[in-house]
Design a protein around this nucleic acid. Sequence first.
DNA 1: AGCACGCCGACT
DNA 2: GTCGGCGTGCTC
Length: 802
Amino acid sequence: MPIIAKVIVDTPAMTVDRPFDYLIPEQWQDVILPGMRVAVPFGPRQLLGYVVAVADVTALTDTKKLKEIVDIFDVRPVLTPEMLALGEWMAQDSLNFRISIFQTMLPNLMRGSYEKYFVLKNWDNTAAVKLFEGSETLDWKAVKDSEFVTALQRWIQAGDIETVYRVSSKETKKTKRALKNCLTETELIASLESLGNQAKAQRKCLAMLLELEATELWVDEAKARGISDAVLRSVAEKGWVTIFSKEIDRDPYANHHFEKSEPLDLTTDQETVFQRIFEVQREKIAKTFLLHGVTGSGKTEVYLQTIAEALKLGKQAIMLVPEIALTPQMVERFKSRFGKKVAVLHSALSAGERLDEWQKIEREEADIVVGARSAIFAPLTNIGLIIIDEEHEATYKQEDYPRYHAREVALWRAQHHQCPVVLGSATPNVESFARATKGVYELLELPERVNNRPLPTVEIVDLKDELRQGNTSSFSTVLLDKIKDRQQKGEQTVLMLNRRGFASFVMCRDCGFVPECPNCSITLTYHKLRHQLKCHYCGHQAPMPPQCPSCQSEHIRQYGTGTQKIEEELLELLPDIRIIRMDVDTTSRKGAHEKLLTAFGNGEADILLGTQMIAKGLDFPNITLVGVLNADTALNVPDFRASERTFQLLTQVSGRAGRHQLLGEVVIQTFNPDHYSIQLAQYQNYIAFYNQEMGLRKLTGYPPYYLTALIQVTSTDERKGEETIANITGFLKRELNEQTILLGPTPAPIAKIKNRYRYQCLIKYKVEPNLRDVLRRVLETYQKEIRNGLTVSIDFEPYTMM
DNA sequence: AGCACGCCGACT
DNA sequence: GTCGGCGTGCTC
């Protein structure tokens, strides 16, 4: 009989990132299992914790220290043994805290909610009774900032009051009012006859109940049939029906109807790819495929059919898509093919909806999970296939704690379940493609668009020439002519404004002064709506100065371009053009994204104007022109992946044009027409891009030729930060191989955020078997410095180095 | 992360 | 003398 539970407690700190032993009270001795959530006393507090193991003995020498588990929150484990093992691996591999990992694996509502309150014990203490306002308890929050804190401390010492810490789960169920018929058919008829003539509404109600086959009915529905609340109350009073709250699942797609779709015929290429994946599915081995298919080559149909095979084999499947591509269009495709078997997880769900979807998976009511990054932790127990669409997308890497890459988690789970992983992309991550050429992954290709649709023709426009010809607008002559042409033909245009590394800022024309955030080393962004300057990192706001604060000149104005400004500019050039604008402003409301896309799909606009969010997943037959207004802003970012990102973005957005009957055209406007990432995007020539990029990576010593880890130090004290990063770099130099390259120490590209100075050092290495141990030692050393406003963080294979 | 414990300066 | 500041160590 296990009497000891090993528990990871809810405190994300290095010193407690290990299991603590607790006694299992007798009544729970065969109830508590690994993976369950419990409440445990931890120091003076009570915390939520995850049982990671049960045992007969404790390794603790002083067994008097053992405390008992005080509460349990689950009847069955919420974390499977697989998830516990995965969590352990993630903790070791990425130096994450175990508690943070477990919490990301589960819906937010399963986290603990904490209460602290006082209980009055001595009612003779009149001052206390007064403060408690005659009640037995007093909430800590109500007094924590008041002048009574010292008095309370005194009373605790005297034993007049006690502090109570309580942890509970936040889970709630959504309920809906329902009515239950308490009468038999004969009783119903009798009651009907007993009613007087004036009780027409009650008669109608009973008549309805008679017709009803079920004994229960939603109150909503009764109302819809013309039975009012008042009538329900009177029949309930007579005991004929009871009204109660019934738990329901929140189904975010409850009001959608999905047309059933059938598998499409596959092209020869699709068939070859499908068969190869299917072969491995039957063999039940862990193998990773890289599916390189040009835009419009029908990757999604292959996904759908391999998933169908997984189901036929009695298995389940996970399909990850970038958050931004988790559009209603995408969900529609899955729901219409697989119906109720699909669970969808994305950031637009409310906490309750997310919990319900999770539970639907846990109860094995869903066999297919479609979702963004964290859906890789879906509690499926019999996975037969994992697909990551647009595998090159940066959103698969979580950049804050716990740091993880969904691709790596997918590979781990595939190993556990012995099933294939399919990484799909038109523009694979350079590292992934390198692995495919080396045979670590198996390369599968879809080189042609379905129905032999040609790729769109791409024209590159040099904005320097436009300027020379005196065109200072955001639209080149070529692009504007083509837009006009489409408008006349009734075809549609997608315009993308690339916002990466780019925002509208303010500058003084006379002295060049640019307003910066006082807390962060970043230029302030101009917001037209409020006529304000805003910092995107700390939220600092300032009014737009009427004069230059530096030279008093009035020639201070906004530079750079936002979608709003583009919209105005275009309306000035083409007054009768209909534009739908998609950016953070117009899509922040729930469902707005879907609404705008539907409107565009219905032909309610000539132009869809947006930021990167429109580059993916759009599939409308009438789009024949794609314009990229500024292709190169992403090139100016200090990041070794800048070219790769630019190439990927341009290729993706170009792929939106001419996907169906009509031919597509693309216009790319740039100041760097000769840059290889732009040149090669013109022909969607991934292989040429890959080769060129690999040459550069080799020369500069970046992935995949080197592995990387980024150490970042932040400090409120500039000197201390500088000192610390220097010490760490020195330490690393001593501990690591001679061949390992250390870039730094240097200030981070954004040298200050929220008044914290930032420094970094990039480790580039080939073989470092002890790297994790060495870095763990670094973290341990500076762990106590957190108190002095210093943080040290480590990111393996970073995606952004800002 | 919190919280207690403990060691120093400035007050009744 | 003691109240309360915050540096340090511990939590099964």
